[in-house]
Design a protein around this nucleic acid. Structure first.
Lengths: 201, 201
DNA sequence: ATCGTTCCAATACGTTCGTATTGTTAAAGC
DNA sequence: GCTTTAACAATACGAACGTATTGGAACGAT
């Protein structure tokens, strides 16, 4: 029970603003470029402010990906299929396109994801973000394939789990060539659409 | 023409030994963990030695991935298909399994690859390693599919380029779950074999 | 009005960093 | 045997680092 609450500020907003700056740096120059002072400069705040909102650098690093994870979940929840109920194919396409780094926001998310990957090896909390998310994504894709099969839009002899893995692999493998400029987001999208055309009868 | 060549040592061997130490650290703790002193400690040599063989840290970092790239090329060249000519299917399987981090060596190569990825964005020399290699791999896979089609082992209505992309995507997307322990190398291998079984008639 | 607390800027401190510099050893050429 | 040079180890140095500390301004509660 707080007896005194002087000078209240929006803590989450402050922390998020700092996390934003960190994520920008990580996407452009990797985790090696992260220092408290560098993040402060990027955010346009003092280093003292960062110290006030984060106990240490590790907590700052940890908050930043949790914040990014929250951003992604926000987007997935807010999607809520604006134009009525989507068909399984529309949902499938939406999910697959969501994973490719096709604009600045998703590009940053993608790059931050790979930057944190090695950290996941030793950090169980970080690992959980990936370990929990991936099987859920596989299940979602397989379920959508199953729904399309029940609607008669995909041949019944296709294995939904195998198709889910192929679809995910196809989408997932677009990441590196897209961020490295070897392929445009449009080409990546076309590759996915091409395969969806073949999968759906 | 060297007039004086006192105290000759194998320069490449020394540089490679140092690069080995660097790659070990990068795979375990990322590029952020790289310092001249840390690499020296890992290699069991003095920091002065590293200074003697590399002008600066950037050159050391650059040499290390070039060395890794050389290691990978060595393995691909030395393969040379020990037991006679391989069938297209055998070659396809070999190439695909080669990309998944199924043992310590390949796991290190995989992790180092992702660690260097963000650096590729700004460094053209690093980017070239990826930009040159990927299309070549796609072509190789597509050619092998074509050869199998000509031999009547793959249905002629399959698009070799699409199949190449699916195969690569399937193999490529095994990397993260394998290094993070979400899937065993055996399971990743089984996923590839399962799809090859379906692709080949 | 004052007190207490939050918010934050500024500074300080000890460590680690990349790299320059110096010194020493040993082998090759004459 | 003497000189020269490669091959280091060791040390030095300034910059940057994470973080502890200090101090002040601003505002809510009393």
């Amino acid at each position: 029970m707080p007896v005194d609450v002087p000078r209240q500020v929006d803590h989450k907003a402050r922390r998020d603003q700092i996390a934003e700056a960190l994520l920008d740096i990580v996407a452009d120059h990797g985790l090696e470029a992260i220092s408290v002072r560098a993040v402060a400069a990027q955010a346009g705040v003092s280093a003292g402010r960062i110290q006030h909102y984060f106990a240490n650098k590790d907590e700052l690093l940890a908050y930043a990906i949790e914040y990014q994870d929250w951003l992604v979940q926000q987007r997935w929840n807010e999607q809520a299929w604006p134009e009525g109920e989507p068909t399984p194919r529309e949902a499938l396409r939406w999910v697959l396109l969501e994973t490719i780094p096709r604009d600045d926001r998703r590009r940053r998310e993608w790059l931050v994801g790979v930057a944190y990957l090695i950290r996941m090896l030793a950090n169980p909390n970080l690992r959980a973000l990936y370990v929990d998310g991936l099987p859920r994504l596989y299940r979602l894709l397989a379920d959508l394939v199953r729904m399309a099969q029940e609607a008669g839009d995909i041949a019944p002899d296709r294995d939904p789990d195998v198709e889910a893995e192929l679809l995910f692999g196809l989408a997932d493998s677009q990441g590196p060539p897209v961020v490295l400029g070897l392929r445009t987001p449009e080409q990546a999208t076309a590759a996915i659409d091409y395969y969806l055309d073949h999968l759906f009868q």
